[in-house]
Design a protein around this nucleic acid. Structure first.
Lengths: 217, 217
DNA sequence: CACAGCATTCGACACAGTGTCGATTAAGTC
DNA sequence: GACTTAATCGACACTGTGTCGAATGCTGTG
Protein backbone atom coordinates (compact mmCIF):
# COMPACT_ATOMS: atom_id res chain seq x y z
CA UNK A 1 0.00 0.00 0.00
CA UNK A 2 2.27 2.66 -1.26
CA UNK A 3 -0.29 4.54 -3.27
CA UNK A 4 -2.80 6.61 -1.36
CA UNK A 5 -5.44 6.12 -4.02
CA UNK A 6 -6.39 3.00 -5.93
CA UNK A 7 -7.56 3.10 -9.58
CA UNK A 8 -11.29 3.70 -10.05
CA UNK A 9 -12.84 6.60 -8.20
CA UNK A 10 -16.32 7.25 -9.53
CA UNK A 11 -15.87 9.43 -12.63
CA UNK A 12 -17.58 12.34 -10.99
CA UNK A 13 -18.90 14.78 -13.49
CA UNK A 14 -17.82 18.06 -11.99
CA UNK A 15 -15.93 20.17 -14.46
CA UNK A 16 -14.20 18.54 -17.36
CA UNK A 17 -11.88 15.99 -15.81
CA UNK A 18 -13.01 12.43 -16.28
CA UNK A 19 -9.40 11.35 -16.55
CA UNK A 20 -8.25 8.38 -14.56
CA UNK A 21 -7.55 10.81 -11.76
CA UNK A 22 -8.44 14.43 -11.69
CA UNK A 23 -5.96 17.04 -10.60
CA UNK A 24 -7.95 17.54 -7.41
CA UNK A 25 -7.67 13.85 -6.59
CA UNK A 26 -3.95 14.02 -7.03
CA UNK A 27 -3.62 17.08 -4.92
CA UNK A 28 -5.62 15.43 -2.16
CA UNK A 29 -3.49 12.32 -2.45
CA UNK A 30 -0.34 14.38 -1.96
CA UNK A 31 -1.82 16.07 1.11
CA UNK A 32 -2.97 12.75 2.54
CA UNK A 33 0.45 11.20 1.97
CA UNK A 34 2.16 14.14 3.62
CA UNK A 35 -0.07 13.95 6.68
CA UNK A 36 0.55 10.22 6.98
CA UNK A 37 4.32 10.52 6.65
CA UNK A 38 4.47 13.47 9.06
CA UNK A 39 3.08 11.12 11.67
CA UNK A 40 6.20 9.02 11.25
CA UNK A 41 9.04 11.48 10.77
CA UNK A 42 9.79 15.20 10.45
CA UNK A 43 9.40 17.06 7.16
CA UNK A 44 13.16 17.33 6.79
CA UNK A 45 13.33 13.55 6.48
CA UNK A 46 10.58 13.34 3.89
CA UNK A 47 11.63 13.81 0.27
CA UNK A 48 9.57 15.15 -2.58
CA UNK A 49 10.03 11.78 -4.22
CA UNK A 50 8.39 10.00 -1.29
CA UNK A 51 5.43 12.37 -1.39
CA UNK A 52 5.10 11.81 -5.13
CA UNK A 53 5.37 8.02 -4.87
CA UNK A 54 2.81 8.00 -2.07
CA UNK A 55 0.41 9.90 -4.28
CA UNK A 56 1.07 7.59 -7.23
CA UNK A 57 2.85 10.15 -9.40
CA UNK A 58 6.40 10.90 -10.44
CA UNK A 59 8.57 13.53 -8.84
CA UNK A 60 8.35 16.08 -11.66
CA UNK A 61 4.56 15.78 -11.57
CA UNK A 62 4.61 16.71 -7.92
CA UNK A 63 5.88 20.12 -8.98
CA UNK A 64 2.81 20.53 -11.13
CA UNK A 65 0.78 20.70 -7.91
CA UNK A 66 3.11 22.26 -5.34
CA UNK A 67 6.26 24.30 -5.63
CA UNK A 68 7.94 22.53 -2.70
CA UNK A 69 7.24 20.19 0.18
CA UNK A 70 7.00 23.21 2.48
CA UNK A 71 4.02 24.38 0.43
CA UNK A 72 2.33 21.06 1.11
CA UNK A 73 2.79 21.55 4.83
CA UNK A 74 1.51 25.09 4.48
CA UNK A 75 -1.67 23.85 2.82
CA UNK A 76 -2.20 21.25 5.55
CA UNK A 77 -1.50 23.73 8.32
CA UNK A 78 -3.83 26.25 6.74
CA UNK A 79 -6.70 23.82 7.07
CA UNK A 80 -5.84 23.19 10.71
CA UNK A 81 -5.73 26.92 11.37
CA UNK A 82 -9.17 27.29 9.83
CA UNK A 83 -10.47 24.53 12.05
CA UNK A 84 -8.95 26.16 15.12
CA UNK A 85 -10.58 29.47 14.22
CA UNK A 86 -13.99 27.93 13.78
CA UNK A 87 -13.68 26.00 17.05
CA UNK A 88 -12.51 28.84 19.21
CA UNK A 89 -15.91 29.96 20.42
CA UNK A 90 -16.65 33.01 22.51
CA UNK A 91 -15.48 31.85 25.94
CA UNK A 92 -13.50 35.06 26.39
CA UNK A 93 -16.75 37.01 26.16
CA UNK A 94 -18.12 35.17 29.19
CA UNK A 95 -15.31 35.73 31.68
CA UNK A 96 -17.57 37.84 33.88
CA UNK A 97 -19.69 34.79 34.70
CA UNK A 98 -16.86 32.50 35.78
CA UNK A 99 -13.31 33.64 35.24
CA UNK A 100 -11.51 30.34 35.62
CA UNK A 101 -14.03 28.44 33.53
CA UNK A 102 -13.89 31.14 30.89
CA UNK A 103 -10.15 30.87 30.46
CA UNK A 104 -10.31 27.09 30.52
CA UNK A 105 -12.92 27.12 27.76
CA UNK A 106 -10.80 29.56 25.78
CA UNK A 107 -7.60 27.53 25.98
CA UNK A 108 -9.21 24.13 25.65
CA UNK A 109 -10.20 24.19 21.95
CA UNK A 110 -6.71 25.40 21.16
CA UNK A 111 -5.31 22.32 22.91
CA UNK A 112 -7.85 20.07 21.25
CA UNK A 113 -7.01 21.26 17.76
CA UNK A 114 -3.28 20.96 18.40
CA UNK A 115 -3.82 17.53 19.84
CA UNK A 116 -5.94 16.06 17.07
CA UNK A 117 -3.57 17.32 14.37
CA UNK A 118 -0.34 17.05 16.29
CA UNK A 119 1.65 15.75 13.34
CA UNK A 120 0.83 18.82 11.29
CA UNK A 121 1.13 21.41 14.05
CA UNK A 122 4.39 19.96 15.31
CA UNK A 123 5.78 19.96 11.79
CA UNK A 124 4.61 23.52 11.26
CA UNK A 125 6.22 24.65 14.52
CA UNK A 126 9.48 22.97 13.53
CA UNK A 127 9.46 24.19 9.94
CA UNK A 128 9.20 27.82 11.01
CA UNK A 129 12.97 27.83 11.24
CA UNK A 130 13.37 26.64 7.68
CA UNK A 131 10.57 28.21 5.72
CA UNK A 132 9.65 31.89 5.74
CA UNK A 133 6.14 31.14 4.44
CA UNK A 134 5.40 28.78 7.33
CA UNK A 135 6.90 31.25 9.76
CA UNK A 136 4.68 34.03 8.45
CA UNK A 137 1.50 32.00 8.70
CA UNK A 138 2.43 30.81 12.19
CA UNK A 139 3.15 34.27 13.50
CA UNK A 140 -0.04 35.59 11.95
CA UNK A 141 -1.98 32.93 13.85
CA UNK A 142 -0.13 33.70 17.07
CA UNK A 143 -0.70 37.40 16.63
CA UNK A 144 -4.42 36.82 16.45
CA UNK A 145 -4.46 34.83 19.69
CA UNK A 146 -2.31 37.41 21.43
CA UNK A 147 -4.70 40.18 20.48
CA UNK A 148 -7.71 38.22 21.71
CA UNK A 149 -6.06 37.44 25.04
CA UNK A 150 -4.85 41.03 25.37
CA UNK A 151 -8.35 42.39 24.84
CA UNK A 152 -9.78 39.96 27.35
CA UNK A 153 -7.20 41.02 29.94
CA UNK A 154 -7.98 44.69 29.33
CA UNK A 155 -11.65 44.00 29.66
CA UNK A 156 -11.10 42.19 32.96
CA UNK A 157 -9.04 45.10 34.22
CA UNK A 158 -11.70 47.61 33.19
CA UNK A 159 -14.41 45.81 35.11
CA UNK A 160 -12.15 45.68 38.15
CA UNK A 161 -11.77 41.90 38.20
CA UNK A 162 -8.07 42.01 37.41
CA UNK A 163 -5.52 44.43 38.85
CA UNK A 164 -3.52 46.72 36.62
CA UNK A 165 0.06 45.76 36.07
CA UNK A 166 2.39 45.19 33.18
CA UNK A 167 1.04 46.04 29.72
CA UNK A 168 -1.73 43.63 28.75
CA UNK A 169 -0.13 43.06 25.39
CA UNK A 170 3.15 41.90 26.95
CA UNK A 171 1.35 39.66 29.38
CA UNK A 172 -0.74 38.14 26.61
CA UNK A 173 2.39 37.57 24.54
CA UNK A 174 4.34 35.59 27.13
CA UNK A 175 1.28 33.59 28.14
CA UNK A 176 0.75 32.73 24.53
CA UNK A 177 4.38 31.69 24.21
CA UNK A 178 3.91 29.46 27.22
CA UNK A 179 0.89 27.76 25.73
CA UNK A 180 2.57 27.28 22.38
CA UNK A 181 5.78 25.82 23.73
CA UNK A 182 4.07 23.66 26.35
CA UNK A 183 1.70 22.15 23.83
CA UNK A 184 4.57 21.38 21.54
CA UNK A 185 6.67 19.78 24.27
CA UNK A 186 3.81 17.68 25.55
CA UNK A 187 2.47 16.52 22.20
CA UNK A 188 5.81 15.66 20.71
CA UNK A 189 6.85 13.75 23.80
CA UNK A 190 9.82 15.89 24.73
CA UNK A 191 11.46 16.17 28.12
CA UNK A 192 10.73 18.11 30.21
CA UNK A 193 7.00 18.28 29.55
CA UNK A 194 3.76 18.24 31.48
CA UNK A 195 1.63 15.11 31.19
CA UNK A 196 -1.13 15.59 28.63
CA UNK A 197 -3.96 15.08 31.12
CA UNK A 198 -2.67 17.79 33.47
CA UNK A 199 -1.60 20.32 30.86
CA UNK A 200 -4.83 22.29 30.53
CA UNK A 201 -5.23 22.70 34.29
CA UNK A 202 -1.61 23.78 34.64
CA UNK A 203 -1.93 26.42 31.95
CA UNK A 204 -5.22 27.72 33.36
CA UNK A 205 -3.62 27.98 36.78
CA UNK A 206 -0.79 30.15 35.45
CA UNK A 207 -3.25 32.32 33.52
CA UNK A 208 -5.28 32.87 36.69
CA UNK A 209 -2.27 33.74 38.77
CA UNK A 210 -0.68 35.96 36.14
CA UNK A 211 -3.83 37.89 35.29
CA UNK A 212 -5.78 38.07 38.57
CA UNK A 213 -3.25 37.26 41.28
CA UNK A 214 -1.82 40.28 42.96
CA UNK A 215 1.86 39.70 43.51
CA UNK A 216 3.07 39.85 47.12
CA UNK A 217 1.22 42.45 49.22
CA UNK B 1 37.91 38.25 4.45
CA UNK B 2 36.69 34.79 3.79
CA UNK B 3 39.28 33.01 5.84
CA UNK B 4 39.15 33.36 9.60
CA UNK B 5 42.93 33.00 9.80
CA UNK B 6 45.45 33.97 7.19
CA UNK B 7 48.64 31.95 6.83
CA UNK B 8 51.66 34.13 7.78
CA UNK B 9 54.04 32.68 5.18
CA UNK B 10 52.58 32.59 1.70
CA UNK B 11 52.83 28.95 0.63
CA UNK B 12 52.62 27.86 -2.98
CA UNK B 13 49.05 27.63 -4.19
CA UNK B 14 49.43 24.21 -5.67
CA UNK B 15 50.24 21.05 -3.81
CA UNK B 16 49.88 20.39 -0.12
CA UNK B 17 49.96 23.36 2.14
CA UNK B 18 52.75 23.55 4.66
CA UNK B 19 51.71 22.81 8.22
CA UNK B 20 51.35 26.30 9.60
CA UNK B 21 48.45 25.73 11.92
CA UNK B 22 47.96 23.13 14.57
CA UNK B 23 44.81 21.06 14.71
CA UNK B 24 43.56 23.15 17.63
CA UNK B 25 43.91 26.33 15.57
CA UNK B 26 41.87 24.79 12.82
CA UNK B 27 39.19 23.58 15.15
CA UNK B 28 38.93 27.05 16.68
CA UNK B 29 38.77 28.58 13.21
CA UNK B 30 35.84 26.31 12.32
CA UNK B 31 34.01 27.23 15.50
CA UNK B 32 34.67 30.94 14.96
CA UNK B 33 33.47 30.73 11.36
CA UNK B 34 30.31 28.92 12.44
CA UNK B 35 29.52 31.50 15.09
CA UNK B 36 30.06 34.32 12.62
CA UNK B 37 27.89 32.75 9.92
CA UNK B 38 25.15 31.84 12.41
CA UNK B 39 24.83 35.55 13.04
CA UNK B 40 23.83 35.95 9.41
CA UNK B 41 21.69 32.93 8.59
CA UNK B 42 20.36 29.69 10.08
CA UNK B 43 22.41 26.51 10.20
CA UNK B 44 20.29 24.93 7.49
CA UNK B 45 21.55 27.57 5.07
CA UNK B 46 25.19 27.10 5.98
CA UNK B 47 27.02 24.35 4.12
CA UNK B 48 29.97 22.32 5.34
CA UNK B 49 31.89 23.79 2.43
CA UNK B 50 31.31 27.33 3.70
CA UNK B 51 32.48 26.38 7.18
CA UNK B 52 35.58 24.77 5.70
CA UNK B 53 36.36 27.70 3.42
CA UNK B 54 35.91 30.11 6.29
CA UNK B 55 38.41 28.16 8.33
CA UNK B 56 40.85 28.01 5.42
CA UNK B 57 40.58 24.27 4.79
CA UNK B 58 38.91 22.02 2.24
CA UNK B 59 35.62 20.27 2.79
CA UNK B 60 37.06 16.78 3.39
CA UNK B 61 39.41 18.24 5.98
CA UNK B 62 36.43 19.60 7.85
CA UNK B 63 35.38 16.02 8.50
CA UNK B 64 38.72 15.40 10.17
CA UNK B 65 37.58 17.77 12.94
CA UNK B 66 33.82 17.34 13.11
CA UNK B 67 31.49 14.65 11.90
CA UNK B 68 28.84 17.15 10.73
CA UNK B 69 27.89 20.80 10.96
CA UNK B 70 25.45 19.89 13.75
CA UNK B 71 28.41 18.74 15.82
CA UNK B 72 29.96 22.18 15.39
CA UNK B 73 26.82 23.80 16.73
CA UNK B 74 26.79 21.30 19.56
CA UNK B 75 30.33 22.28 20.55
CA UNK B 76 29.45 25.99 20.44
CA UNK B 77 26.26 25.47 22.40
CA UNK B 78 28.06 23.37 24.95
CA UNK B 79 30.33 26.29 25.77
CA UNK B 80 27.32 28.60 26.14
CA UNK B 81 25.65 26.12 28.44
CA UNK B 82 28.76 26.01 30.61
CA UNK B 83 28.79 29.78 30.78
CA UNK B 84 25.12 29.86 31.73
CA UNK B 85 25.75 27.34 34.49
CA UNK B 86 28.64 29.28 35.93
CA UNK B 87 26.65 32.54 35.82
CA UNK B 88 23.51 31.26 37.40
CA UNK B 89 24.36 32.20 40.95
CA UNK B 90 22.34 31.34 44.05
CA UNK B 91 19.48 33.81 43.78
CA UNK B 92 16.93 31.05 44.36
CA UNK B 93 18.49 30.46 47.77
CA UNK B 94 17.68 34.01 48.81
CA UNK B 95 13.98 34.14 47.99
CA UNK B 96 13.10 34.51 51.68
CA UNK B 97 14.76 37.95 51.76
CA UNK B 98 12.94 39.42 48.77
CA UNK B 99 10.80 37.16 46.64
CA UNK B 100 10.46 39.33 43.56
CA UNK B 101 14.10 40.34 43.53
CA UNK B 102 15.11 36.71 44.04
CA UNK B 103 13.21 35.52 40.98
CA UNK B 104 14.44 38.45 38.96
CA UNK B 105 18.03 37.65 39.85
CA UNK B 106 17.45 34.01 38.98
CA UNK B 107 15.95 34.67 35.54
CA UNK B 108 18.22 37.55 34.63
CA UNK B 109 21.50 35.66 34.04
CA UNK B 110 19.58 33.22 31.91
CA UNK B 111 18.39 36.14 29.74
CA UNK B 112 21.85 37.65 29.68
CA UNK B 113 23.50 34.47 28.46
CA UNK B 114 20.86 33.91 25.83
CA UNK B 115 21.18 37.52 24.77
CA UNK B 116 24.95 37.69 24.44
CA UNK B 117 25.07 34.45 22.44
CA UNK B 118 21.78 34.77 20.65
CA UNK B 119 23.09 33.44 17.36
CA UNK B 120 24.15 30.18 18.98
CA UNK B 121 21.19 29.72 21.28
CA UNK B 122 18.70 30.54 18.54
CA UNK B 123 20.40 28.09 16.23
CA UNK B 124 20.42 25.43 18.94
CA UNK B 125 16.73 25.95 19.61
CA UNK B 126 15.96 25.66 15.91
CA UNK B 127 18.21 22.68 15.29
CA UNK B 128 16.49 20.61 17.97
CA UNK B 129 14.02 19.59 15.31
CA UNK B 130 16.73 18.32 13.01
CA UNK B 131 19.39 16.86 15.24
CA UNK B 132 18.82 14.36 18.03
CA UNK B 133 22.14 15.27 19.67
CA UNK B 134 21.21 18.95 19.91
CA UNK B 135 17.76 18.01 21.16
CA UNK B 136 19.23 15.84 23.89
CA UNK B 137 21.61 18.50 25.13
CA UNK B 138 18.88 21.12 25.06
CA UNK B 139 16.41 19.03 27.02
CA UNK B 140 19.10 18.13 29.52
CA UNK B 141 19.70 21.84 30.11
CA UNK B 142 15.98 22.55 30.38
CA UNK B 143 15.51 19.66 32.78
CA UNK B 144 18.10 21.16 35.09
CA UNK B 145 16.38 24.52 35.16
CA UNK B 146 13.00 22.94 35.71
CA UNK B 147 14.31 21.03 38.72
CA UNK B 148 15.84 24.15 40.23
CA UNK B 149 12.65 26.15 39.79
CA UNK B 150 10.56 23.27 41.11
CA UNK B 151 12.68 23.00 44.27
CA UNK B 152 12.46 26.74 44.83
CA UNK B 153 8.67 26.62 44.50
CA UNK B 154 8.46 23.72 46.94
CA UNK B 155 10.67 25.58 49.36
CA UNK B 156 8.49 28.69 49.12
CA UNK B 157 5.41 26.58 49.77
CA UNK B 158 7.02 24.91 52.78
CA UNK B 159 7.83 28.21 54.39
CA UNK B 160 4.27 29.38 53.79
CA UNK B 161 5.18 32.14 51.36
CA UNK B 162 3.45 30.47 48.44
CA UNK B 163 0.09 28.67 48.50
CA UNK B 164 -0.22 25.03 47.55
CA UNK B 165 -1.71 24.33 44.17
CA UNK B 166 -0.85 22.38 41.08
CA UNK B 167 2.25 20.15 41.29
CA UNK B 168 5.38 22.28 41.57
CA UNK B 169 7.04 20.27 38.84
CA UNK B 170 4.26 21.03 36.36
CA UNK B 171 4.26 24.69 37.26
CA UNK B 172 8.03 24.88 36.89
CA UNK B 173 7.82 23.16 33.52
CA UNK B 174 5.34 25.54 31.92
CA UNK B 175 7.08 28.60 33.36
CA UNK B 176 10.32 27.32 31.91
CA UNK B 177 8.64 26.80 28.54
CA UNK B 178 7.43 30.36 28.70
CA UNK B 179 10.89 31.73 29.38
CA UNK B 180 12.44 29.63 26.65
CA UNK B 181 9.94 30.53 23.97
CA UNK B 182 9.76 34.19 24.93
CA UNK B 183 13.51 34.61 24.86
CA UNK B 184 13.66 32.98 21.48
CA UNK B 185 10.87 35.13 20.04
CA UNK B 186 12.33 38.34 21.37
CA UNK B 187 15.95 37.70 20.46
CA UNK B 188 15.25 36.46 16.98
CA UNK B 189 12.96 39.38 16.27
CA UNK B 190 9.81 37.38 15.65
CA UNK B 191 6.25 38.61 15.87
CA UNK B 192 4.57 38.58 18.29
CA UNK B 193 7.28 39.21 20.86
CA UNK B 194 7.88 41.35 23.92
CA UNK B 195 10.35 44.20 23.54
CA UNK B 196 13.74 43.21 24.89
CA UNK B 197 13.83 45.90 27.57
CA UNK B 198 10.49 44.82 29.08
CA UNK B 199 10.95 41.06 28.80
CA UNK B 200 12.56 40.41 32.18
CA UNK B 201 9.91 42.39 34.07
CA UNK B 202 7.13 40.65 32.19
CA UNK B 203 8.48 37.20 32.96
CA UNK B 204 9.06 38.04 36.61
CA UNK B 205 5.52 39.33 36.87
CA UNK B 206 4.09 36.05 35.56
CA UNK B 207 6.32 34.06 37.90
CA UNK B 208 5.08 36.09 40.87
CA UNK B 209 1.44 35.71 39.92
CA UNK B 210 1.71 32.02 39.10
CA UNK B 211 3.68 31.04 42.19
CA UNK B 212 2.40 33.41 44.92
CA UNK B 213 -0.85 34.83 43.61
CA UNK B 214 -3.90 33.08 44.91
CA UNK B 215 -6.36 32.71 42.09
CA UNK B 216 -9.88 34.05 42.74
CA UNK B 217 -10.85 33.52 46.40
C1' DC C 1 70.78 12.14 8.78
C1' DA C 2 67.62 8.74 7.43
C1' DC C 3 63.49 7.01 7.98
C1' DA C 4 59.25 5.40 10.30
C1' DG C 5 55.02 6.81 12.01
C1' DC C 6 51.61 10.04 12.81
C1' DA C 7 48.72 14.13 12.02
C1' DT C 8 46.87 16.52 8.52
C1' DT C 9 45.40 17.54 3.96
C1' DC C 10 42.70 17.30 -0.31
C1' DG C 11 41.26 15.38 -5.13
C1' DA C 12 38.05 12.41 -6.73
C1' DC C 13 34.22 9.60 -6.22
C1' DA C 14 29.53 7.83 -5.15
C1' DC C 15 25.28 9.19 -3.72
C1' DA C 16 20.92 11.61 -2.54
C1' DG C 17 17.97 15.28 -3.22
C1' DT C 18 16.20 19.47 -5.67
C1' DG C 19 14.13 21.95 -9.42
C1' DT C 20 13.49 22.62 -14.61
C1' DC C 21 12.71 21.69 -19.60
C1' DG C 22 10.84 19.70 -23.40
C1' DA C 23 8.45 16.08 -25.32
C1' DT C 24 4.33 13.21 -24.88
C1' DT C 25 -0.23 11.65 -23.90
C1' DA C 26 -5.04 11.78 -23.40
C1' DA C 27 -9.56 14.42 -22.50
C1' DG C 28 -12.56 17.72 -23.86
C1' DT C 29 -13.82 21.42 -27.48
C1' DC C 30 -15.26 23.06 -31.84
C1' DG D 1 -10.65 15.25 -37.27
C1' DA D 2 -7.96 19.05 -35.89
C1' DC D 3 -7.07 21.98 -31.81
C1' DT D 4 -6.39 23.04 -26.94
C1' DT D 5 -5.19 22.25 -22.57
C1' DA D 6 -4.31 19.59 -18.21
C1' DA D 7 -1.38 16.26 -16.77
C1' DT D 8 2.58 13.37 -16.99
C1' DC D 9 7.38 11.92 -16.92
C1' DG D 10 12.40 11.02 -18.71
C1' DA D 11 16.45 13.26 -18.65
C1' DC D 12 19.37 16.88 -17.25
C1' DA D 13 21.97 20.29 -14.46
C1' DC D 14 23.00 21.51 -10.02
C1' DT D 15 23.98 21.59 -4.95
C1' DG D 16 25.28 19.35 -0.99
C1' DT D 17 26.85 15.25 1.79
C1' DG D 18 30.11 11.87 3.37
C1' DT D 19 34.09 8.61 2.31
C1' DC D 20 38.49 6.75 0.54
C1' DG D 21 42.93 6.66 -0.58
C1' DA D 22 46.88 8.82 -1.69
C1' DA D 23 49.88 12.55 -0.69
C1' DT D 24 52.75 15.64 2.40
C1' DG D 25 55.24 17.44 6.11
C1' DC D 26 56.43 17.16 11.10
C1' DT D 27 58.62 14.69 14.95
C1' DG D 28 61.13 11.60 17.25
C1' DT D 29 64.38 7.70 17.29
C1' DG D 30 68.56 5.21 16.18
Amino acid sequence: MDSALEPPPAPSTRGRRARVFSGDDRERAILATAERLLGERPLSEISVDQLAKGAGISRPTFYFYFTSKEQVLLALFDRVVEEARSNRGDALQRLAEDEEQGWRDAISPFCATFSSHRAITSAAAATQYTSAAVRDLWSQVMEQFVVEVMEAIESERRRGAAPDGIPARDLATVLNSMVERSLFSTFSGQTPAVAEERLLETLVSVFMGAIYGRAQE
